[in-house]
Amino acid sequence: MTVLARVLAPIAAVCVTGFARVVTGVRGNWFGCTPAPVPRVYFANHASHGDFVLIWTVLPAALRQRTRPVAGADYWEADRIRRFLGREVFRAVLIDRNPAARRADPIDAMVSALDAGQSLILFPEGTRNTTDEPLLPFKAGLFHLARKRPEVELVPVYIDNLNRVMPKGEFLPVPLLCTVTFGAPTRLQDGEDKASFLDRTRTTLLDLRRPGGG
């Protein structure tokens, strides 16, 4: 399995990003920063399972190698294909979303990835947003991560239109154009408390929304 998986993983990666490009014509807008090989936390809105695939697709190939999505273990451990994709292709940092049952602290897993020079893709809403609101309230994860590694750049990333391409519960994607907009990096400020940090980072992300998705 492992040798085969090693061979298949890069092929699967090309297929996944190629498919994402064809279906969504996705474009990356680097408005607030440039793609740089430093450990970063890309925090994004979450409306579809394809969200981190889109971010991953618009990253330059060299950065893609070292950028790992943070994802729920319950979803990505569910069957062989997802396990292969999650572990070998996306090399996701899998976390247990159920606080009662988990043995390892999810923040520690993220911190060790950052310490290894890798970047993370994080969805601070914690779950997929299926409401009409553009963004749900943020969970505390981003704050705890920022407190443990205050020097790491937190980059807001707004993914536009993917929820229309593939709404929850549909199986046929509609090929509308998607954009992935990268904002200016931010950090936890001195003396900033949890509520105001989460509020500020959420506003930063909302500000990246562009009318009509242009």
């Binding site: 239109n161 509609v174 090929p175 509308l176 154009l177 009509g212 998705g213 242009g214």
Partner: peptide
């Protein structure tokens, strides 16, 4: 053209 139009 259609995907551009429907996108907005």
């Amino acid at each position: 053209a259609l995907r551009e139009f429907l996108t907005i």
